[in-house]
């Protein structure tokens, strides 16, 4: 299985939609995450629907041997066509969260990324890609989710720094700033304008990666929304219940 895509956090709904697109294109996939029975179901689905090559790898980002176990296991699949970072978890507003979930939020959304990605880097084809599913929440701290937002901001900056370092000499890095997508993460949130369909989001994400973009807002209207929110003077911003 040469030149596969490594999907980190492959049980994510957006990741699943992305995997389906690559599978349809005949790209081998390596699905990584902590819930191996679930990964196995997703892998079976991709095999049956698209006849694709899919392998599953359990990876516990909270374990003591992280990230070495994962990196060692992935060695046999090099060179990789690309890596997608899809791990993420919503964190309650800081006032409502305990220390444990604040720590986990920072780790799952950002902390675990640098050690894992840096170690996997040598396995990625020089013409390949690394993509981070980040969030518009990182564009400006907001009362409702600034812990999550802070971690996503860190993830975005990490991605862009990596892109800067690898330019011309390594895989292309793309940071995806996703708006609200209709998955378990946003289920139950009221969203003006509605949450985007994961399959439509996956299509745009794949396009942005293919085009070698540095940053892409998906769906695109979020670029405009966030430009406004970023530039809103504080007195006005303070009036918003977001």
């Amino acid at each position: 299985m040469a030149n596969g895509v490594l999907v980190l956090g492959a049980t994510s709904t957006i990741a699943r939609a992305l995997s389906a697109r690559w599978a349809r294109d005949g790209v081998p996939l390596h699905l990584v995450g902590r819930d191996t029975p679930e990964l196995e179901r997703i892998a079976q689905d991709l095999r049956i629907r698209y006849g694709s090559d899919v392998s599953v790898l359990g990876c516990d980002i909270a374990a003591g041997d992280f990230p070495q176990a994962t990196v060692t296991a992935m060695g046999q699949h090099a060179p990789l066509r690309g890596i997608v970072w899809a791990f993420g978890t919503m964190v309650a507003a800081a006032g409502a969260a305990d220390a444990q979930s604040l720590r986990a939020g920072a780790w799952v959304n950002f902390g675990a990324a640098p050690p894992l990605i840096e170690a996997l880097l040598p396995l990625v084809d020089r013409q390949g890609f690394i993509a981070f599913l980040s969030s518009v929440a990182g564009d400006r701290g907001r009362q409702s989710n600034y812990v999550y937002g802070a971690a996503k901001a860190a993830l975005s900056v990490y991605g862009l720094g990596l892109r800067h370092r690898l330019r011309g000499a390594g895989p292309s890095v793309t940071v995806l700033k996703l708006g609200v997508v209709d998955t378990r993460m946003s289920w139950g949130m009221g969203v003006p304008g509605g949450a985007a369909d994961p399959e439509a989001v996956a299509a745009e994400v794949q396009r942005a990666i293919g085009a070698g973009k540095a940053v892409a807002y998906v769906p695109r209207r979020w670029a405009l929304v966030m430009a406004v929110i970023r530039h809103l003077p504080e007195p006005l911003f303070n009036l918003l219940r977001i």
Binding site: T13, R41, Q44, D45, I48, R49
Partner: peptide, 17 residues
């Protein structure tokens, strides 16, 4: 509706969510 994975196909029998 999101539990919609196909799990096996053997001898003409499809098992799916």
């Amino acid at each position: 509706t999101r539990l919609n994975r196909m799990l096996s196909f053997r001898n003409g029998v499809l098992t799916a969510e």
